[in-house]
Nucleic acid binder design. Structure first.
Lengths: 218, 218
DNA sequence: TTCGCAAACGGACCCTGGTCCGCTTGTATT
DNA sequence: AATACAAGCGGACCAGGGTCCGTTTGCGAA
């Protein structure tokens, strides 16, 4: 897996918070002294190790001791770097999240810019649902870790809100945004799919219907 | 706390599943021999102990060993009765859930029967949101335990679907129901309120707006 | 180059959820 | 009342998350 800088860490729209563990490598360290080389190295190594292990055995099976061993460091180091298991999961998500955000910001339409708002919104729903389902275990394992909800969720909300505004709907777009986002949340859809045996296509159909009803200005 | 039979365990719409731990006392034991007296007694005692501890220190702080001690039994017994921590939480929820369901089924309007469908739906949202927020920690702690999502969630879904049908909306009411329920889920709203500082009233306003848009048949 | 020290390291240690299994007890039957 | 046995019981035990603290190390300053 190339850990290269193929795209700027968009996930780092985390408003440089007070979150545990360090932030991404490419972060704008404002005033504070730069992180030590060994810390950066270990972070990389551990992320890669964790990624490998998750790919092999799934997120649920991942243990912190495993990650430490695989990375050739002590368990304490893993915790210093990521704060907690949730923090580690969140860090793992950051990669793919950044990729996805890039697709929304500058990818081809209808997901990316260029298509009419409604088309973009529907494409967004499909794409987000797919992603949330694909990384459901990771997302759920990341729980309500500091950085994820306030980073990724913020971006997603801003995007949807933008589209709703463009559609010139009345009402409070902020509130409506949350309401539209909820049915796509990993915690919600993973239950529907795993425990209730609902077909993901059905969920999307339901969401699409919902959106169509909400935005119609007949 | 009166453990009396003031209302029939509605939470037991759990379709008498294969879930771990036993089901509520009032269950229709079909064919199988009845539970032993000590088992029933311990279940009662432990529920009460757990309830007390949760009230005192909150759901998150609850440990299984505590419950066992407080109930004067071994830890193994707690696990036999409830299967897991999640199972215990789910059992705790059952009480209040049953109460709530009763209010929906036979309470005063507009939540209960008698009011026009739209009014009932909006009242439902307000009430459900309130309940989900009030027991958010318990609900989240109960996770995706067998009985909760397929018991409570099923009831709630059926109710909303009923109302939507009465409103004579087009489209697949099943899908729409899920989409309308998602924004009220504890996992969603508790993040909004705790981590994002959103006012519950705002959430309700957003949901109300959503519903109004969905059901309008202009 | 040497020095000082904040930062990083690592693994022993603690806590809690969950399992196991030998012992006890309720209950149906005779 | 005696018997048999399924069900229940309890606590020792294990695994994994998370903390602590004495030791090591990178790195800027002298």
């Amino acid at each position: 897996m190339s850990t290269g800088g193929d795209l700027i860490s968009l996930g780092a729209i985390t408003l440089g918070g007070t979150s545990v563990g360090d932030s991404s490598v490419g972060d704008i360290s404002l005033g504070a002294r730069p992180p030590r080389a060994d810390a950066v190295r270990n972070r990389e190594v551990l992320l890669e190790a964790a990624h490998r292990l998750v790919a092999q055995r799934g997120a649920d099976a991942l243990t912190m001791a495993q990650v430490a061993d695989e990375g050739g460091v002590g368990k304490g180091t893993v915790y210093r770097r990521f704060g907690s298991r949730e923090g580690l999961m969140a860090a793992l998500l950051d990669h793919s999240e950044a990729r996805w955000q890039a697709a929304v910001i500058s990818g081809p339409p209808p997901l990316g810019p260029g298509a009419p708002p409604l088309d973009r919104l529907l494409a967004f729903g499909a794409s987000r649902l797919e992603r949330n389902l694909a990384s459901a275990d990771l997302i759920v394992a990341a729980g309500s870790d500091q950085r994820r909800p306030l980073g990724a969720l913020r971006f997603v909300a801003a995007h949807v809100r933008q589209l709703l505004l463009a559609l010139e709907i009345g009402g409070d777009t902020n509130l409506l945004t949350s309401a539209l986002l909820a049915p796509l949340e990993a915690s919600v859809v993973s239950i529907q799919v795993s425990d209730q045996g609902v077909d993901p296509a059905q969920i999307l159909a339901g969401w699409t219907d919902l959106v169509r009803r909400v935005v119609r200005t007949d």
